[in-house]
Structure formats: structure tokens, C-alpha cells
């Protein structure tokens, strides 16, 4: 399996960041960056990354089960994470999560049939002082309100 030239360059560099013989250090970053490009950690990604780092596929499988950002099934083009942890909960995070879930008709770690959106109720995102926080892919949206959230989802939906 091949990745985009940019990702190939990134991987080539990444592998040099770990001591000689300890290239397995690159495993989790590689899986996440590959997922960003492919949409999920597919069996092909697992086999490819395992062979490049010279580790057994099971060593890859065991980390996928651990890290919440690694998904075996496809995320939506717009992956929406709504924080409902303490500071966000005090600022209406749970209601925002319910609102998105209703609007998109999907629940926790589910993807819409058209592949546009996926949703996740997430733990603390590190934006507590500007709660409630929503993360769309890697972009933060802070001090969210129900209206702002509606507008955000509509603008993402119209981007296709």
C-alpha cells in the first residue's frame, strides 16, 4: 500500500526520530497520520505499518484497542467531538452533544451513512476555561452555544 508523497516524506522523517533499533516508537504517530489520510486504521494500514516498522501485526492490533483516536471503522469527513467533561458539562456540553446527535441522527462513535459526519462524546479536550468546547477534526471551537453549533454543522455540511 502506498500513501501520498507528503505522508511518505513524513514517515521517512518520523522513523529517524527514535534511537537505532527502536523504530517502533513511530508506531502510534504513523497509525494516526495514516488514519487521517485513509479514514480509518484498515487491515491494509495495519499490515503496511507493521511491515515498515518490522513489528508483528498483533503489536499494532494491541495499540489500536488502547487509543481512543484510532478507529477501525471510517470516521466522517467531519469528525465532531463534543466535550462533556466537568467544565464543559457546567457550561452545557451535554446538551450540545444531545443536540448534534439529534441533528445528525447518530450516536457516540457513529458515522452518518453519507460519510460526511461522525460524532464522539469526548473527555476533557483541554479548553476548560473557554467551555463548552467542540473539536472538528483538529480545529477547536470554543465558547459554543446551541446556535453557533447549528451554524457550524450547517456550514460544514454545505462544504461537501
Amino acid at each position: 500500500m502506498t500513501f501520498s508523497p507528503q505522508l511518505e516524506a513524513k514517515f521517512a522523517d518520523l522513523i529517524t526520530h527514535y534511537p537505532e533499533g527502536r523504530q517502533k516508537g513511530a508506531l502510534i504517530p504513523m497509525l494516526l497520520y495514516a488514519q487521517d489520510e485513509v479514514g480509518a486504521v484498515t487491515p491494509e494500514v495495519i499490515a503496511e505499518v507493521a511491515s515498515r516498522l518490522n513489528v508483528k501485526p498483533v503489536e499494532v492490533e494491541e495499540v489500536i484497542g488502547y487509543y481512543t483516536m484510532l478507529w477501525r471503522h471510517k470516521r466522517g469527513k467531519h469528525h465532531i467531538q463534543v466535550c462533556t467533561n466537568l467544565s464543559c458539562m457546567l457550561a452545557g456540553g451535554e446538551e450540545l452533544y444531545a443536540q448534534v446527535s439529534k441533528k445528525l441522527g447518530i450516536g457516540h462513535r457513529e458515522t452518518t451513512p453519507d460519510g460526511q459526519f461522525s460524532l464522539e462524546e469526548t473527555e476533557c479536550l483541554g479548553a476548560c476555561s473557554w467551555a463548552p468546547a467542540v473539536l472538528v477534526n483538529y480545529d477547536f471551537h470554543m465558547k459554543m452555544t446551541p446556535e453557533k453549533l447549528d451554524r457550524l454543522i450547517e456550514s460544514l455540511g454545505s462544504k461537501q
Binding site: 517502533k24 516508537g25 502510534i28 494491541e62 488502547y66 484510532l70
Partner: peptide, 25 residues
């Protein structure tokens, strides 16, 4: 830089080091 992939436990320093080595935290 080294990216994590979603885990509070990986903030605990020894779990973090495991994660840095490409393992479960």
C-alpha cells in the same frame, strides 16, 4: 514532537514513556 492518540493515562509519566516506545500506555 511525538503525537499521542487519545489517552488520559498517557499523561502519567511511565505510561507516557511506554506510549513513546510504541506500546499501550
Amino acid at each position: 514532537t511525538h503525537t499521542g492518540a487519545g489517552s488520559y493515562e498517557c499523561g502519567e509519566e511511565s505510561a507516557l514513556l511506554e506510549s513513546l516506545e510504541g506500546k499501550r500506555g
